[in-house]
Each structure stands twice: as structure tokens, then as C-alpha cells.
Design a protein around this nucleic acid. Sequence first.
DNA 1: TTGAAAGCGCTAACAC
DNA 2: GTGTTAGCGCTTTCAA
Lengths: 336, 336
Amino acid sequence: MVTIKDIAKAAGVSVTTVSRALNGYSDVNEKTRKKISDIARELNYSPNTLARGLVMKRSKSIGIIVSGLTEASRKDNFTLEVLSGVNDVISERDYDLVLFSTTTTKQREKTYSQLCRERRVDGAILHGIKMDDPYLKEVIDSDIPCVLIDIPIETETVGYVSTDNALGAKKAVQFLIDQGHTNIAMMNGHDRAYVSIKRLEGYAEALSEAGLPLKKDWIVDGGFSEEKAQEEAVKLLTQHPDISAIFCASDLMALGVMKAAKELDIDIPTELSVMGYDDILLASYTHPALTTVAQNIYQLGYQSANLLIDMLEEKTQSRACILDTEIAIRETTGKK
Amino acid sequence: MVTIKDIAKAAGVSVTTVSRALNGYSDVNEKTRKKISDIARELNYSPNTLARGLVMKRSKSIGIIVSGLTEASRKDNFTLEVLSGVNDVISERDYDLVLFSTTTTKQREKTYSQLCRERRVDGAILHGIKMDDPYLKEVIDSDIPCVLIDIPIETETVGYVSTDNALGAKKAVQFLIDQGHTNIAMMNGHDRAYVSIKRLEGYAEALSEAGLPLKKDWIVDGGFSEEKAQEEAVKLLTQHPDISAIFCASDLMALGVMKAAKELDIDIPTELSVMGYDDILLASYTHPALTTVAQNIYQLGYQSANLLIDMLEEKTQSRACILDTEIAIRETTGKK
DNA sequence: TTGAAAGCGCTAACAC
DNA sequence: GTGTTAGCGCTTTCAA
């Protein structure tokens, strides 16, 4: 493997000069620089980022820590889209991406900061962790710069990117109200998810502004799971046949609700309107196609990476980024 | 950041001893070792993999090079499932995963081996590249150990993992024949894809064994694209109304064919049977649900990573791994 | 069983 | 504009 030493020898200069020439420092004679870079190319030289990182104390790589890169959770391609957004920034800005996937068991073995420090990543992006996750506390305590997706924490070294969940939910419920619905239930996720809390807020606000009562019985938790949501929806719809619309905190749960309706022989959208949240790929392929609050997950990843690198390079003081949502109207909602 | 030097000082021993103790060498006094590891824990020590990699000349990380981690290609979550399989092995075997995403333009800038050498990955897994990709030649020429997904190349340093594409296709077509179909067309991908070539082989073989003629006109290329497949299918079905079944080399193209049928008002499956290949998530959500050749993509990733690490650790002589496929019978195929 | 010393490939004071 | 030198944190001969 060819090193700068080899180049130095071939060019008849010192390694310092080679280093400076290759890194574009100004205080190198143009002729020398040309000679050096020619030789480097000839010799097919690649810098050793390990050595460089060791001395510079930064690796020019960031870690992305995802939870839920498992065989099971293939239904939404959240992770992939986030990854895709992150990746685009990474390569634009000449960083590398190290992928860490965690499971609850694995977290016991290796802590967040261990993970990051061992690999000497300059910063990290965290996605898919719950608010009561042990990682979260560590993140805040550690001094490793990081950006959280969908968890609103701001410190000197921690930032976050999220969508406006309350507003998104509010718009969704307002849409249902505009369609003439007054009996609108909510299938929420669980209370350890920030997004659940905010989406519930939006739901409540929309109802209140329309002068509609908020009924506790009409709000159930589907745990972000299709199956759980189906079960809960069956119970809900059986007990409260007057419900004419259900707003779901995720598309996956909306799929569950749709299955429940089928099970109970309730027609969508004539007898029941269903509204999702996320706009996962499947949303446009279900029958009928799911009306939902669309968030741009790719952007979530993209902005996270940009924010993190800005933080690393001290190009920003801001620590938060809130993205917009839009309602994608399809076939599961109708006029009451 | 605490180093072995700090530990050495605190323990009153040399760095050599600390290094040996922490790495589990046998020639360290049990008492010393205990003392050292206690201190290491106390000080919250994490080894610097950069420094270690520099001297050991291996980074204990592997690269995964994917093409198509773009916003556009979100419809199949191939990449995610491969990633998921790879990732599971990686963490089991205590490696790290560096993600490289390539686009055709980016390949011009940085060559494969540059990518790998700069980051000092010990080996690489390549997924989603075409047979005429410039990367491919480089892979073979370079001496970096690597495993290809779905491209059958075996050398000292190159291995591959794939499914039995010819057999999968054959089984698919045989299934259609068993259902009474004799006029079976094929929507293939393109001839720069290994899988296309093999699937065509299987198609031909099944026909031939059943004594059915192979009609060149009935084989078209959809370029693995939904839109292109739709266009081609419209043409095909218009020109040859006697076709009663279409075998597609990918599910995505099968979706296109289904759209074409809808466009031409041809009912599936009573008038036309459609068979896909891959079993992407969408396959079970289309209307009617798509019958397809299911391949276990997660396993593709899992086995690739295992093969690569086995190669790196010289635990195997074998360089190839062929996985099985199964037919998932759903609703797009029927008796003729 | 332990330590001293060299060196992996690179960057960065500092001197010339 | 260029070279000398030290050192990043670690492993590994070689000697004691």
C-alpha cells in the first residue's frame, strides 16, 4: 500500500510537503504541487483515513443509529428513506456513514457513547428510539454531537429534526370535520412516543376549535402495530357504532383499522372514514387507497445530516428543524 | 479521552501490559489483569479503533456498496432487507458496517478500490450493480476481498451469493403450465442483469420440457421498471391477444403488467394470469394480490456477510452460496 | 510475567 | 517554500 512516504521519495521532497500539497495548502510551490499530485495519481495513492483520523482527532464519519432494522419491521421503509436522505448529504459533504443498529438486548452490552467513541465517529444521528430508551439519557449526558429524529431535545451538543406533528394531526382532523364528521375517534401509538403526544394534541385542538367534545373512550392506543390496532379497532367500533371516522397516528395502524372494518363488515369510506399518518409506500396501494398525512421522511434524514454536519463544523447555532406535512387525499375518507 | 496510557499510569504498569491484559493474552498475571480491567471500566475506557486499525492493518469494518439508495427507488425494499441481513451478521461477529452508496456519476469521481482503501474496510459487499458496471471490473482486479450479490464471479478474493434464478423461473413457469396455460409470455428485465439471463433460461427450460414452443415475440424487456413494463405489456397484449399468462422477472414489472391489463380491460386472473418474481412487500397488497417467486432477500444479505467474514478470517475455501426460492401463490394466477 | 522501544501513516509546530 | 521533529493511541518484537 503506497503512503505519502513513497510519494515523498519519488518526488524527492519531504513527507510534510507531500501532505501539504495533497491537502491543498497554499504555501507549496505550484510546480512541486503538480509534481506531487502527478506522482500520487501514478502510484494510485489513497490516503489512510485511519492515520489521518488518529492525528486529527476526527474521522470525518458519522454514525447513524437506528433501531428497527430487523426482519420484522419491513412494512414501512422509514429507515431506508431516512438512510437515503442522510446518505445523500454525507456524500455531498464528503463524510462517511457508519451504520449501527440496536436492539434492546444489544443496548445492554454496549452503550451509546462506547459505540461512538470506539469507532471515533464525529457525531451521530439517532432514529427510531423511544423516549424512555436508556440510550436517550446517555446521548444527553455524553458530549458527542448528535441529532435526534422526532425527539425534541436541544442542548449544546444535541439537536433534533421533526415534523410539526401537532399541526399535521390538526389538519387531518380538520379535514375530517370539513367532510362533515363529528364522531371522530383516534387510534394513537403509545405515550412513550413524542409523536403520539403531539398528534393527540393536534387531534384535541381540532375538535375543540370545532366545538366538538373530546371523548376519552374514543382514544385508544394501537402501539404503532397493525395487529394491535386491528384488535383495538374491533373493540372500539363494536362498542361505539356511532363513530364515523378514525384518525390513526400511523399508516400501519390505519391498515389494521381497515382490516378491522372488513372484519366487522363496515364499508370504507361510506360507513367509516379512515385517515392515516406517515404516507408509507403501502398507503397508495391499499384498497381503498389510504388518505393520510404525508411527511417527507427522506427530508427528515436529509435535514438531520445537514444539521449534524453544520453543528460539527460550527456553521450553525440552531439546533432544531421542523418540517412541514401535507394531507394526501385518497379513497378512505368520504363525506358524512 | 482516556487511553491505555492513562490506565497504565493508574495501574502502575506499562502500556504493553495494559494492551495485553485488555486483549485477553494469556501471559498476564491474573491479578494484574483484574486490576487493569477494573481501572479500565472505572475510567470508562473505549479503545481507539483508528489507532488499532492503523497498526493492525485491519479495521474490523466492512463496506456495503449499494447502488440505488435513492429517493426514486423506494418501491422495493430490497436494499433495506439486504442491509438488515448484513447488519445482523456484522454485529454478531463484531464488525462495523460502513455504507457507501453509489450513483453512476459518483463512480466517475471515486473508484471502488479508492473507496475501500481510503476507509480501510477489510472487505466489501456489493449489491445492485449491473454486469457492465465499471465497478465490476475494478472489483475483480483489486485485491480487496468482496462478495457480490447476484453476480456470479468467483476468484481468490471474490465470492458471490445468489438465488437459483433459473430454477425459480422454471418452477414459476411450470406452475403456470400446471394451471393449464400454454400461451405464456415473459416480461424480462434487461440483458445486463445476470438474473434476467438465468430467469430467461428457466422460462425456456420449463416450456421446452412441457413441449411448448418458445416464441421470441413473446419475450420482451421491461427494464425492471414498472412504467416500461406497463408500456411493453400493452403492446404485447394488444398484438398477441392469445397470451393467457405472463411471467415477469420482477414484481415491480408485474405491477406494470397489472396496470396494463387494467388499461386494456383484461381481467386478472380470469383472462390473464400474472406471475412476479421477488416477493416484495407490495406483492401481497396489490389487488388482486400477486402470485410470485419469493426469494429471501434478508438471507441474501445475511449469507453475503457471513461469506465475506469467513473469507476475511480464512474460515472457508468456498466462494459461492446459492439460496432457494419458493412460489407464493396468491390471486393473480388462475386455471386456464 | 513484564517493560522498553519501535513503528503503523499521517499532520502540525517550529525552524530554516 | 520546504524540512525536521514530535506525536496521535495502539500493538508487537525483543530483552530482561
